[in-house]
Simulated scan of single mutants.
Amino acid sequence: MYTSEYVNGKRIHVKQYFRVYNSWEDSINAHTQLLVNGTTDQPNRYAQVRNAKNYREAAKALQKGGYATDPEYASKVIQLIEKHNLHKYDA
């Protein structure tokens, strides 16, 4: 598939390969394992996400950890959470 990525602050389209899962549950489990175990070369890549005190810190830590290349990723995630009052699910 083609996806938009940001390289040196510029948005480009790149062909990327994505994993295919047998079920939604398998996909969620793989995503959870990524956040818990990081990547092979950086096992603690998302430690700041796991240790975040709130969704704002978590979104910023995801961006800092390289989860997405969009320089506005964290602010977009925070905006969506607040727009749809998703923070009400935080306990």
Rank of each mutant, 00 (worst) to 15 (best):
Y2A: 15
T3Y: 15
S4F: 12
S4V: 14
E5F: 07
V7F: 07
N8H: 14
G9D: 03
G9K: 05
K10Y: 14
R11T: 11
I12H: 04
V14R: 03
K15N: 11
Q16N: 13
F18N: 03
R19F: 09
V20P: 05
S23T: 00
S23F: 00
W24I: 05
W24D: 05
E25F: 01
D26G: 08
D26C: 06
S27N: 07
I28M: 03
I28S: 00
I28A: 01
N29H: 08
N29I: 12
N29V: 13
N29P: 07
N29R: 14
A30L: 10
A30V: 01
T32V: 12
Q33N: 15
Q33L: 12
L35D: 11
V36Y: 10
V36D: 10
V36M: 08
V36C: 11
N37T: 09
G38Y: 04
T40K: 11
D41C: 05
Q42D: 11
Q42M: 10
Q42I: 08
P43Y: 01
P43K: 13
Y46S: 04
Q48H: 10
V49K: 05
V49R: 01
V49S: 03
R50D: 06
R50Y: 10
R50C: 02
N51W: 00
N51A: 02
N54A: 01
E57N: 06
E57G: 02
A58C: 02
A58M: 05
A59Q: 12
A59V: 02
A61M: 04
A61K: 01
L62H: 09
L62K: 10
Q63T: 02
G66N: 06
T69E: 03
D70H: 13
D70N: 13
P71I: 14
E72W: 05
E72V: 15
Y73A: 09
A74E: 04
A74F: 04
K76H: 15
V77I: 14
V77Y: 12
I78G: 11
L80P: 12
I81C: 12
I81E: 07
E82G: 01
K83G: 06
H84N: 12
H84K: 07
N85H: 07
L86C: 06
Y89N: 03
D90N: 08
A91H: 13
